[in-house]
């Protein structure tokens, strides 16, 4: 799980062009949206594409995203339980 969380942080920094952020800056339980990394709605769509492309996970209901993307911890748990690749 720790390895997956590190990988997710690297992928998020890469696909969202978070130039001033490093893996060490993102704590596992930090909120990704709002006060945390300050991600926006386009970033949320980009994360949905990331899940599909890298882990073979298709989010059928975008409303699921709010819970799944609340932190690296919740995202990693979801990926581990649902990944197909």
């Amino acid at each position: 799980m720790a390895e997956l969380k590190e990988l997710l942080k690297e992928q998020i920094i890469d696909v969202l062009n978070l130039e001033d952020i490093t893996v060490a800056d993102i704590q596992d339980n930090d909120p990704l949206f709002g006060e945390g990394l300050g991600l926006d709605s386009i970033d949320a769509l980009e994360l949905i594409v990331l899940l599909d492309k890298e882990y073979g996970i298709k989010l059928a209901d975008p409303k699921q995203g709010k819970e799944i993307f609340s932190s690296i911890q919740t995202l990693a748990q979801f990926v581990e339980q649902n990944r197909t690749k």
Binding site: V15, I42, D43, E46, V49, D52
Partner: peptide, 9 residues
């Protein structure tokens, strides 16, 4: 087929 929302906008 993975269109990027961040590019598309």
């Amino acid at each position: 087929y993975y269109p990027s929302p961040a590019v598309f906008v």
